[in-house]
Design a protein around this nucleic acid. Sequence first.
RNA 1: GGAGAGGUGGCAGAGUGGUCGAAUGCAGUAGUCUUGAAAACUACCGUGCCGCAAGGUACCGUGGGUUCGAAUCCCACCCUCUCCGCCA
Length: 424
Amino acid sequence: MLDIRQIREEPELCQQRLKARGGDAWQLITEVLACDEQRRSGETEKQELQQERNRLSKEIGKMRSQGEDSADLETQVRGIGEKIKAVGETTEAADNRQRELLLQIPNVPHENCPVGSDETANPEIRTWGEKATFDGFEPTDHLTLGGKLALFDFELGAKISSSGFVVYTGAGARLQRALIQFLLDLHTREHGYTEVNPPVVVNRDCMFGTGQLPKFEDDMYGIEDNAHFLIPTAEVPVTNLFRDTIQKGDDFPVKTTAATHCFRREAGAAGRENRGLIRMHQFDKVELVNVVHPDQSVDQLETLTNEAEKVLQTLGLHYRIIELCTGDIGFSATKTYDIEVWAPGQNEYLEVSSCSNFGDYQARRMKLRFKDEDGKNRLCHTLNGSGTALPRLYVALLETYQQADGSIRLPEALHSYFGGEEIR
RNA sequence: GGAGAGGUGGCAGAGUGGUCGAAUGCAGUAGUCUUGAAAACUACCGUGCCGCAAGGUACCGUGGGUUCGAAUCCCACCCUCUCCGCCA
């Protein structure tokens, strides 16, 4: 959520920065301000009435204890009670409407977020390594490689679930497990993360906290009780671990990682240049979540991105970093870097990580605070990034390290995790 | 799933209709004392909202209700614990 005080004080600035995203959320600001006005005047009126009621009620108590007749006062207070109820209802309506609107308004992009209307305006920030070259053969794609080596089976996935689900088999399953282990070890041992293993079914509060609700309910798998959802990313359970807490502040940055299954409906995405493992309804991902002091978040986004990059560097995979422009940035984010790994068989870059700074937007939604030096409670900043998504990493790995005979020569970092140097 | 008990401030734990935002203890902060520390003593010590401020107001699991007045009474829901059942 945006800060209502900031909206009140600089409405034009808010609108202007929201406009940079495209969409029409900026138009809601006017109504938010109207609600705010109504809410506050109603609040004041209500409080004055309550004050009067409290005073008179105490009076009644006193009179009764002294055996005096308080009937007149009681009817008077009853009248005040009715007024309080009436004023309270309109105030609450304004309050609810205001919250409803605020929940629909996306975060404002950071001031140095590049302005643009869609992904074509995303600047490339840097690249690492080079596109893999192949001696004497044409690289093929992961579907062919995986099929030949029996690493995964889409038909089985469809049989026991539906399209968009896959069964990893044999060495393919083992490779997936090796990768998860490698990633968690990297982040916990070298980057100072604490590992957690959270539920993948979470309640609505969590989904509001990180910003999936109310706008993106249709993107998620709901549970039949209508109160729980399968998580689309570990960002949801992990960030919400800190919901409604007051952090010490000396522990900043709080760095937490988790490997979880992620579930996405991907409605409308079927068959659209998403062959193979590239877009699944269920996939694994190692997520990195940071809770930091507001002054740290800008720098921390760079650190977080570097931590995710380290994955690809260690595995020797060529990638590029692009920054999302104002028109392409996610709902809750102020600034985002995408890491795209090169997949030779696809002949394109695949997004394996999205690293974002959310500022205080999620923290305000979930009341995530810390005590500052003056003992005042202030909102933390939150960040997260994939470190990394598994299927596309898997694709890049197979396609990059394929050999002429269709076998895979694994990068050294994986040998001990996989228990071998090659898949053939 | 069945039966019972219970959800109060960072923690422990009083409070069963009014003077209770809430006793007390512990923890924490500041100070006195001390060469220093400890102990002792003194003061402070929950969160949100409205307000320039003074101050006001709300919050005792959540949501309703009764009442002039609710932490306290009633209803529903959620959660925790114990026992039974079931199960990895």
